[in-house]
């Protein structure tokens, strides 16, 4: 493959991933409303297009058309920067997720991953940790006490849960022996999904993923009933749209990461025994991965419409007094098991 060809291929891949992210985020809003409606014995949006499928487009259009209000006493630049960072950070995470195996076309290998950096997990952690700036800056720049409280909550919540998340990942990394998402995905063939080896780690990771994406029951930063929308109280029009979009992209990416880390990524049991061709297998892998992702997106929504919001002290207690000790225990337990089975010397 020539360098130019490589560049074009990568650019294409980036474009596709980006588009898919946006589309899925868009339809997540739709799905959210649908799921919410269904769980409340309603029908949900069904007017715009068949089954309301054009509803996201209508919403987007509405967002664009709405009047743009920037509070007078806010910091203009930061006010705009906030949602931009939120959007940016949620988009770039997709770069390291292996969306499938490799395609073999014309003697070239086209891995279905934007970039396979050997510390992919850390990259994700880094981007996640940057993500909180979007909320904090936005909340602060609004110059509104509710926004500020939301921003404060967001930052403390993010920092707190990042620790447990990191520890859960460490246990996983101990098991897999690599930080590359590609390798982690590749090694979970057959039934060797990591969930089997790391059930506790998975639960911790899952809970932390909820907290990191500010989803109910951890949506304290925006909790509308107490903070009137929290950090995005003062936002309107497309900037608000960015925040909401970022949340849904985050949800999508989190689902993808969960699927990749714990649920075999693009693998499915028994499929490799069918002896499918490489390319077909890879495409099938994409399908599997996305079906897992959709399940987790659904799961996110499912939980949202089931559980009530935590109180702030409960949130902190859960993070510091339950999840972190549990994850440390998990790390120690994993280490012990590995030692017993002779995998470390």
């Amino acid at each position: 493959m020539t360098f130019t060809g490589f560049l074009i291929y990568k650019a294409l891949l980036v474009l596709i991933v980006f588009t898919i992210s946006l589309v899925i985020a868009m339809y997540s809003t739709y799905a959210e409303r649908k799921v919410a409606a269904f769980m409340q014995d309603r029908l949900g949006p069904n007017r715009a297009g068949p089954f309301g499928l054009l509803q996201p487009l209508a919403d987007g259009l509405k967002m664009f058309m709405k009047e743009e209000i920037i509070p007078n006493v806010s910091n203009k630049f930061l006010f705009i920067l906030g949602p931009s960072i939120a959007m940016f950070t949620s988009c770039v995470t997709g770069a390291v997720i292996p969306w499938g195996g490799s395609l073999h076309i014309g003697g070239n290998v086209y891995p279905l991953q934007v970039t396979d950096i050997n510390i992919g997990i850390l990259y994700i952690m880094a981007i996640t940790s940057i993500g909180v700036y979007g909320i904090m800056i936005g909340g602060w720049a609004s110059n509104n006490k509710y926004s500020l409280l939301g921003a404060l909550r967001a930052s403390s919540q993010m920092i707190s849960y990042e620790i447990a998340m990191g520890l859960a990942i460490i246990a996983l990394v101990m098991h897999t022996g690599t930080l590359s998402l590609n390798k982690i995905a590749a090694m979970q063939t057959g039934w060797h999904w990591n969930i089997i080896y790391q059930p506790v780690g998975f639960i911790i990771f899952l809970i932390c993923a909820f907290a990191e994406t500010n989803r109910t029951p951890f949506d304290l930063p925006e909790s509308d009933s107490e903070l009137i929308g929290g950090y995005h109280t003062e936002y309107s029009s497309m900037k608000l749209g960015f925040y909401l979009f970022a949340e849904y992209i985050n949800m999508f990416i989190s689902s993808a990461i969960i699927a990749t880390l714990y649920f075999g990524g693009y693998h499915m049991p028994f499929i490799d025994r069918l002896g499918l061709s490489d390319n077909f297998g890879a495409i099938l892998g994409i399908v599997f991965l996305f079906s897992k992702i959709f399940f987790f997106i659904f799961f996110f929504m499912w939980v949202r419409w089931t559980l009530p919001r935590f109180r702030y002290d409960q949130l902190m207690n859960l993070g510091w007094k339950v999840l972190i000790p549990l994850s440390i225990f998990n790390v120690a337990f994993t280490g012990t098991l590995m030692w017993i089975f002779g995998r470390i010397h």
């Binding site: 510390i119 850390l122 990259y123 952690m125 880094a126 996640t128 940790s129 940057i130 909180v132 700036y133 904090m136 602060w140 500020l148 921003a151 404060l152 930052s155 403390s156 993010m158 920092i159 990042e162």
Partner: peptide, 21 residues
């Protein structure tokens, strides 16, 4: 990467947190 995680992601957030608090 660690620089981003530790400094930008944790330490400076803590700073911001305290300033806001």
């Amino acid at each position: 990467i660690v620089n981003i995680i530790v400094y930008a992601g944790a330490i400076m957030v803590l700073f911001l947190f305290v300033i806001m608090l």
